[in-house]
Design a protein around this nucleic acid. Structure first.
Lengths: 346, 346
DNA sequence: ATGAAAGCGCTAACAA
DNA sequence: TTGTTAGCGCTTTCAT
């Protein structure tokens, strides 16, 4: 059985296409019996109005496009999950694309999506794009009047709705927490030093140190690139400075760091505390279970989808908003307990 | 700037729409200079042909729909990643949907996708659908001439291309391996006893036992539902039988089981070996690192996408195929080393 | 070399 | 109550 259209039904009953259309849309203009037999026939033959034709006519696709940098990253998976669920519940379909942290792929994808395929876009910038700073492809989309929500990795150069994790506060809060547990020499291991997110966390860290009258030392911020050997970098760090805490800016690095320290016979958290970013699936299963910063990925996804769909539904203009989502520190066993006396001074 | 169409360009130059269309598509019918100025103008104004209009005309959307039961499950994330990458490289867009293991949601999603939105579908059945056994919605899609590839959780009731993990062999191989390491009392902990996948693994397990002349005991197969407390179920198991190996049918359960055994002061692997299914991100980070069965998710995704797109590109009919993808056992530290003498007998 | 017209599947204003 | 027509944006014959 081929796909059935209004025309097929019209021909079958010898009526006009518009009669069939009206009958199926339960118009009052159509007589009881005609309506009945047409609807019955349509149901029997699994008639479904062609969404493409509808989209062309209505100039709206009921579809939103999502571009995430890396779907294998649990944070983005969670965001995507939140988006999909929310969009779905409001009758939208989701086209999902992965930029794979590549500028070119992001650019191509934006072009594709802005060619009438989606009503709006939710995205987080690829690392390469952030490093490069070329955002023309995104500005083009905005000029095309396609509403967009950016989350997590955003940029000031584009005016649109944004949802950002309060990464500055997260860096600040985490550092403060470690200081409260009595740590003094806090290092950072970052695999995302090119992204806004990574930079903000480091700034928050810096602020917390400064507030306590501690010096910021560039050597304490270890940058790990794809090809680098984390073990060597950490060894170098530990050899030159008596570190007593490490903040890892992503989950994998946190776990890797933990394992490296364990291999070196260093006790966690007695000798060195570890806090990791992005509370995913790994952290609670390693031992000691890692204290982590949760970014509430699913919530961010829901929020992004709702903001976008609200804008799509709203006639007239809405000002752009930027929502700041706070992180939560999930205390587990890779950090010492907070020193009560010390805390009293805060 | 609003979205620009062929008509806008035609009006601007006082030519016909078809001239513009031809110019943009670099037709030889159009004169050098007209072509040049039109193309230039189009580029300057970011003209992009409307994909929806194209789809309607060509009766093909260059889009494939993917339905996975649970995107938070790393296996499915991997498959999705493979699909997205492959589809993209061949010029296809991916609409991704999550059934959330729900029959209703799967049904709705199928309807949506089959309304002309996609050229083909890749899917894995929701657990509820497998339990219920009602596949009408899927048969409808096939009747609508929409090519489909099912992977992992498939069904005999639908004729289409399929990719299945050789779960029988995986269960068999895993059991055999444990026997070779000297284990005799092997239990299974399953959270997916309703799915074809779960059943096949248990059958493979059974076969391996039988081959060695060992009895299959129903009590050795522990079924964990969502509300059940794994710890209690494992305690009950261990109290009644002197188990020396446990096969966990998903990664989370494997890790949970490991932690429960450790808490009970049971040594892994000396007292009890553990093998888990689906090699994800957790397994290698826990200690002892878990021996796991890898299902090659990304590869399955690539394969599914290629099979589907090959079929879409092919004129004339192709017979349906079912590919059986073998699993790999990744030996780590939660199992004993294979007993060489024992192996000699195999 | 350029344009007119038909048509993909559908809805909606307007006629009958 | 039913039908005719136009049009969403595009390509593709078939004139001109």
């Amino acid at each position: 059985m081929k796909k059935i259209t209004l025309k097929d039904i019209a021909d079958h009953f010898g009526v006009s296409i518009s009669t069939v259309s009206k009958a199926i849309n339960d118009s009052h203009e159509i007589s009881r019996d005609v309506k009945l037999k047409i609807r019955q026939y349509a149901k029997a033959h699994h008639y479904r109005p062609n969404r493409i034709a509808l989209s062309l006519l209505k100039k709206s696709t009921n579809t939103i496009g999502v571009i995430v940098p890396n779907i294998l990253n649990y944070f983005f998976t969670q965001v995507f999950y939140g988006i999909e669920k929310t969009a779905n519940s409001r009758g939208y379909t989701v086209i999902s694309c992965v930029s794979d942290e590549s500028f070119i792929k992001e650019q191509q994808t934006m072009k594709l999506l802005s060619a009438g395929t989606v009503d709006g876009i939710i995205m987080s910038l690829a690392e390469q794009t952030q490093a490069k700073g070329d955002l023309q492809h995104i500005l083009d989309v905005m000029e095309n009047q396609i509403p967009m929500v950016m989350f997590d990795r955003v940029t000031d150069k584009v005016e649109c709705d944004k949802i950002v994790v309060d990464d500055f506060e997260a860096g600040y809060k985490t550092t403060k927490y470690l200081l409260q547990t009595g740590c003094k020499k806090i290092a950072i291991v970052s695999s995302i030093f090119n992204s806004s997110v990574g930079k903000l966390r480091v700034e928050g860290y810096r602020e917390a140190l400064q507030e306590m009258g501690l010096d910021y030392d560039d050597k304490m911020v270890v940058k790990v690139g794809g090809a680098d050997d984390l073990e060597i970098l950490i060894s170098l760090l530990l050899d030159s400075i008596a570190v007593d805490a490490i903040i890892a800016l992503d989950e994998m690095t946190a776990v890797d760091t933990l394992n490296i320290l364990k291999m070196k016979g260093i006790d966690v958290p007695d000798q060195i505390s570890i806090v990791g970013f992005t509370n995913g699936r790994l952290s609670k299963y390693v031992s000691p279970a890692l204290t982590m910063v949760s970014q509430h990925g699913k919530y961010i996804g829901e929020l992004a989808a709702n903001i976008l769909m609200d804008r799509l539904a709203y006639e007239g203009d809405m000002p752009f908003t930027t929502k700041l989502v706070k992180t939560s520190l999930i205390e587990r066993d890779s950090t010492r307990k907070v020193d009560k006396n010390h805390r009293a001074y805060q």
